[in-house]
């Protein structure tokens, strides 16, 4: 099941490591490229996108278990023990059980996927993930008839996660996908970035990445996966259903009640970065729009 998706973005788009430090200067001259966005979303997506640097990807994070500041996770997440790690897989599956990280990795093929990443807060990055298709893991454990959703849960370790002392959300962090979304070739479990192990602040050792949804759906440091019949609990959706829908597909036409989602700011442009138009389904409309055919996306935001 691996290799079902080929990104428009390739490794030729990735900044070579020795150029990280020079990128600011390069950015200064790239205003013309950003102007290409006016020609059309897809054109912009293919021509002007350049993956963010390792520094950008690993120092600007939302991982509230380690604090609500963007730099808190990079500072505090070192305390998370990621080895040994295991994932409990249960619910409507043929082979429920506790799977060690190594066991999971032994049966999947790791691919490189360069995806746009759009946060609900209207900032975005392009991230070169390494990971495997979630479908491969789900097929291995055997999804039973009747399963319609997949629920995920983040590690809940107050002694390692200082942010859990504050009830920002109902802990542990939980998320969910419809089964067809979970089985979609774009949906991956990421275990690396830029070919290195994924850092703790980005969700080590294993996190979900659903590139056409707002970032908070891509739940980090997963310890449990449950196949269910009913729509599962999703933390932000439960905390504030008016602001965060279960689907939370990137949609420039549906505003968050407190801010517009029509445009976004690419991280890395500095103090004078221009906003760019947000793309429907974060630019993956061609691949995923069919999942939502006939659905009112304003009601099911």
């Amino acid at each position: 099941m691996a290799r079902r998706y080929k990104s428009n973005l390739t490794w030729d788009d990735v900044t070579p490591e020795h150029l990280y430090l020079n990128r600011r200067q390069i950015m200064a001259g790239s205003g013309a490229l950003i102007g290409a966005g006016l020609i059309g979303g897809q054109a912009r997506a293919q021509e002007a996108l350049e993956p963010n640097t390792w520094e950008e990807i690993t120092t600007y994070n939302n991982y509230y278990e380690f604090g609500t500041g963007k730099d808190d996770p990079a500072r505090n997440a070192g305390s998370l023990t990621t080895s040994p790690w295991s994932v409990e897989i249960d619910g409507l599956v043929d082979n429920p059980g506790t799977y060690s990280f190594e066991d999971i990795m032994s049966e999947v093929e790791i691919e490189e996927r360069i995806y746009r990443f759009r946060c609900v807060e209207a900032w975005s990055m392009v991230i070169p993930w390494n990971g495997f298709e979630l479908a491969d893991l789900l097929n291995r454990v055997g999804v039973q008839d009747g399963a319609r959703y997949v629920a995920f849960q983040t590690a809940n370790r107050p002694e390692e996660m200082p942010g859990l002392r504050v009830p920002v959300l109902e802990w542990p962090y939980r998320e969910g996908l419809r089964l067809d979304e979970a089985m979609h070739p774009l949906t991956i479990m990421a275990t690396g970035i830029y070919g290195r192990d994924i850092p703790n602040q980005n969700g080590a050792p294993m996190r979900l990445v659903v590139p056409w949804k707002y970032g908070f759906k891509s739940i980090k440091s997963i310890v449990r996966i449950t196949l269910t019949e009913e729509e599962p609990h999703a933390s932000w959706n439960v905390a504030n259903p008016r602001e965060y829908g279960f689907y939370s597909n990137v949609n420039p036409n549906v505003s968050h009640p407190r801010w517009s989602q029509a445009s976004e700011r690419r991280i890395g442009g500095g103090l004078f970065a221009r906003r760019e138009p947000t793309l429907m389904f974060n630019g993956y409309e061609e691949e995923v729009a069919s999942l939502y055919e006939g659905m009112d996306l304003e009601a099911n935001f």
């Binding site: 950008e56 963007k70 700011r265 890395g268 500095g270 103090l271 970065a273």
Partner: peptide
Amino acid sequence: GVEPIEAL
């Protein structure tokens, strides 16, 4: 940090 607009 890497997103100075919001930070400032």
